Computed example of a mutant assay.
Amino acid sequence: MCSRRNIKRFTCPKTGNYAIFFFPVISRPRTRQKKRSYIFQDSDSDEEEEENGQEEEGSENEMESNESGEEEEQEEEGSDEEEGSEDEEPNSSICRSIVEKIMKYQYSEFFRDPVNENDVPDYYEVIANPICLNDIIQRIDESNDNDVIEQMMEDVRLLLDNALEYNGAESFVAKEGERMKQSFVKYCRERICSPVHHRRLKRLFSS
């Protein structure tokens, strides 16, 4: 049975006759509306969250590694400073070793001990500030560690000047003193690192 939508009735205006026509109805298939794929959006957001999480973890790991690296560097610097402070030799010890070394040589025989007044009666009348190598070592032990290097240099210079003043530049004692001076300057340059003391050494013993 046809529905009204399939029947069309036409009436002639002159005769009044009418005719009925049947039209087939073509049913069009219904198109389903595409559903939005919210799943892909959710997966994208999940991936973004995972990427953000990985980036945050990476940055945290970098910060932790940087902090640990800084701590290790600080520990290494502290250990280096401690080792340096432990290995650093006191100035008084350096000076004592220099004087003791030149005392072992034969040319220091005239300079080790104080001049015997019985052997040289007028020595203390000529020399106002007598000094010997043993006196210099005693002064090193009693002096301030910061000033001991310059004091040692000045004392050795005084010892050589006394020998020149009393014995003369052409005497055997003065020549032995010159040999001792050369050894003393050599050992000071080897053991003392300060440029200030090197300049002071040059001024005192250049002649």
Rank of each mutant, 00 (worst) to 15 (best):
E67V: 11
Q106N: 06
R5I: 11
N52F: 08
E81L: 14
G69C: 10
R4G: 09
G53F: 09
Y166E: 00
E50D: 10
K34C: 08
K186E: 10
S93T: 10
Y107D: 07
S43T: 15
Y123P: 02
Q54L: 15
Y18A: 14
Q54V: 13
I39L: 09
P29S: 08
E48D: 15
D46A: 13
I131Y: 00
D141P: 00
K8P: 00
E60C: 10
I20P: 01
R200C: 06
L201E: 01
D87L: 10
S143L: 04
Q182M: 15
D155I: 03
D135M: 04
C188P: 03
I7L: 12
T31K: 06
Y124N: 09
K8G: 04
E150L: 10
V156M: 11
E71P: 03
V196T: 13
E71W: 08
E142W: 03
N144V: 06
S171T: 02
N167Y: 14
N6L: 08
K202E: 13
E100W: 03
R28S: 14
E67D: 09
E71N: 13
E154C: 08
V185T: 08
F184S: 00
H197R: 04
V99G: 02
T15Q: 09
F10G: 10
D113W: 07
G78E: 09
Q41L: 13
E64S: 13
R189N: 11
Y187C: 08
S59P: 04
E89Y: 00
L164G: 04
D87P: 02
E67R: 09
M1N: 12
N91I: 01
